[in-house]
Design a protein around this nucleic acid. Structure first.
Lengths: 200, 200
DNA sequence: ACCAATATATCACTTTAGTCATATTTAACC
DNA sequence: GGTTAAATATGACTAAAGTGATATATTGGT
C-alpha cells in the first residue's frame, strides 16, 4: 500500500473516530464540521474531500453498523428451522441491535431516510440499502416455497416487502415512543399475525 | 375579527401562496427564504415569525394536503361493505392522491419523516400525525371485531399498525422507484395477502 | 384623543455548511 | 536526484438559515 493510500485511510479513520466521540458527547446537530476538523487536526476543506456533506458522515456510520449486523445475520442463520422462526430470528436480532443504542438508531434512520429523498446516484445507490432486508427475506421465502413449506401461489416479492415494511414501520413507532415498549417483542408478535392472516 | 388577526392570516397565506409557486418552479432546495420574502413583500425576519424553519413551511404544506385527504376519506367511507374492501378503498384512495404529484409527495414524506426525528414538542406533536392512519384503521377493525366479521382474538392495535406500516413502506418503495409501478395497485394486492396470511 | 401594553415587523448580525483557487505532498519516470 | 504530473490539503470565501435587539403598528382602557 502506498503512502498516499495509508494517509487517506488514516485521515478517514481519524474523522470517523473524532466525530463518533463528539456525536455521543453533544449530539449530531450540535457538533460542527469545524469542531471535528480542529479535533482531528485537519483543515475544514479536507473534511469535504472525504465526505461530501455532514450528513454523508452520518450515513457512513449507518453503513458500518449495517455491515456488522448483516454479516452476523449471514453467519447466524440456522438452516433447518421453520420459515416463521427463521424470519423471526432475523428481525428480532436486528431489533435487538437497534435497541442497544436508541439515540443513534433514531439519528441514522430519520436522517438516512431523508437522504433517500435525494438523488443517491451511482449504481450502488441508496436503493440497495433500502432493499437489503427485503432481499434477504425474498431469498428465505423463495427457498421455503421451493421446499413446499409455504403455498406457492404467494407473490414472493410482495410478501418480502410486506414483512420488511412492517419491520421498518415498527422501528419508527418504537423510535418515536417515549415509554419503553420493546421493539423486538413487538416485531415478533407481528410476524405471527402476518403468518396467521387478519381475515377469518 | 380584529385587524391584527386579519393581517396575520393574510401574511401567512401570502407566504404559502408565493412559496408554493416557487417550490413548483424551482424545487424546495433551490428556493431561498430570501426569495420567498422578497416576492411576498415582507422582511426576512417576518418569515420566521410564521414558520420556525424553512422545513416547517414544507410540513405546513403536508398538513394542508393531509387534512384534505382525510376529510374526503371521512365523507367517502361507505358503511356496509366487507372490512377488507373498506380498508382497500381507503388505502387506494390515499395512494391515488399521492400519485397525482409524485415529486411533492416525495418531498413531503422524506422531509417530514426526517423532522419526526426531532423533538416535535407540544401536545399535538408529530406523533399524532404519524398515527393518524393507524387510528382510522384501528376504528374500522374494532368495529369489525364487534360485528363478529373478523376473529376477536386479534390484537387490534398491532393489526392496525401492520397495515399502516405496509402502506407507508409501499409508498416509500414507490417513491424511490424509477419505473412507473402503480402504488395503488401494489397496496391493493398487499391487503389481500395480509388478509389471507403468509403461512399455509 | 391620548397612553400604556402587547403584538408584529424589520434588518443587521451570527453561525455554519459547503466551495474553490492555490499550495503542498506524493508518485512515477528518466 | 531532479522533474513533471497527479492527488490531496488548505483556508479564505460564499451562501443561506436563523436570531435578536429595536422599531412600528394595533389594541383596549381612560
Amino acid at each position: 500500500m502506498s503512502l498516499r493510500e495509508k494517509k487517506k485511510i488514516e485521515t478517514k479513520n481519524k474523522i470517523f473516530e473524532v466525530s463518533g466521540r463528539l456525536f455521543k458527547e453533544k449530539g449530531f446537530e450540535n457538533t460542527t464540521v469545524d469542531e471535528i476538523t480542529k479535533e482531528a487536526g485537519i483543515a475544514k476543506g479536507t473534511f469535504f474531500n472525504y465526505f461530501p456533506t455532514k450528513e454523508a458522515l452520518l450515513l457512513y456510520f449507518g453503513e458500518q453498523k449495517e455491515e456488522l449486523i448483516y454479516n452476523l445475520i449471514r453467519n447466524k442463520t440456522i438452516k433447518h428451522i421453520p420459515i416463521r422462526e427463521k424470519i423471526k430470528n432475523i428481525l428480532v436480532f436486528v431489533a435487538e441491535s437497534c435497541e442497544k443504542d436508541k439515540e443513534l438508531t433514531k439519528l441514522l434512520i430519520f436522517e438516512s431516510t431523508r437522504y433517500m429523498g435525494n438523488s443517491c446516484s451511482g449504481p450502488d445507490g441508496c436503493n440497495n440499502k433500502f432493499h437489503r432486508l427485503t432481499n434477504i427475506l425474498y431469498d428465505i421465502i423463495e427457498e421455503s416455497v421451493k421446499n413446499g413449506e409455504i403455498k406457492s401461489i404467494i407473490d414472493i416479492n410482495k410478501t418480502a416487502e410486506i414483512i420488511s415494511g412492517v419491520h421498518f414501520h415498527s422501528m419508527m413507532v418504537w423510535l418515536k415512543s417515549e415509554n419503553d415498549i420493546s421493539f423486538s417483542a413487538d416485531i415478533s408478535e407481528k410476524i405471527d399475525i402476518l403468518f396467521e392472516g387478519i381475515g377469518n
